[in-house]
Amino acid sequence: MGNMNLATNAKNTWCPGCGNFAILNSIKAVLGELIEEGFPREKIVIVSGIGCHAKIADYLNVNSFYSLHGRVVPVCEAIKLANPELKVIGFAGDGDTYGEGLEHLIFAAKRDIDINIIIHNNRVYGLTTGQYTPTSPLGFKGRSTPFGTTESPINPLELMMASHASFIARGYSHGIELLKKIFKEGIQHKGFSLMDVLQVCVTFYNMYDYYNSRVYELKDHDSKDYDMALKKIREWDYNYDSKISLGVFYKNDHI
């Protein structure tokens, strides 16, 4: 990305080892590349919700809209509709957008507006100090569920398939090269893109060992094949033990 400075003077307050750093560094690299390739910096807008993830709005020196909890998606949609020349990238948490703002996500996918939503999916509430989220596994013991949850998580990618999202991918905060690749491809995709990132919260839900032994990158996968994409998306349901595939599951170029 050359020497472009996309950092602000804001002090970073994420915990050491937080998976958010990987997302921040990857997006900086991708935005830097886009700018160097000629995309005007002033036409980039980022939107964030509320939660640890959302501090990214303070850390990136581009146009930003630091929104409310769960309210990343409608803001992204409106900014894009108001000025279609803008590249709009929304950063949201799993509690934020798979919980509080889920309805917005489904409708934005259904509308297929050309916005990009990156989910910092750490499967725990970090900023409110450790409660379960819509993607925490069954039995998760958090501060609001000390005896374990009795509900299964949603598989957000499967939900996005059912909602007609035209770009669906999953990355992992331990694997910055793949993350950069996914971000760039998603941002360049013309249509709604959902990029779920398994972003490890080292303080409240450290899943590094668990993920490291299960993740693999998709190979020989045809992202234009809806059925194949759905099959791969269903391989892991964010609950029971299985291999966890990473990469671009589905991409519909509106042919």
Partner: peptide
């Protein structure tokens, strides 16, 4: 625009406003 609910209505309006509309 007729979006999914009034929460989206308000946030969309703020998005338009931010973009200068």
């Amino acid at each position: 625009i007729h979006p999914e609910n009034e929460i989206a209505v308000m946030l969309m309006a703020l998005g338009f406003s931010y973009a200068g509309k």
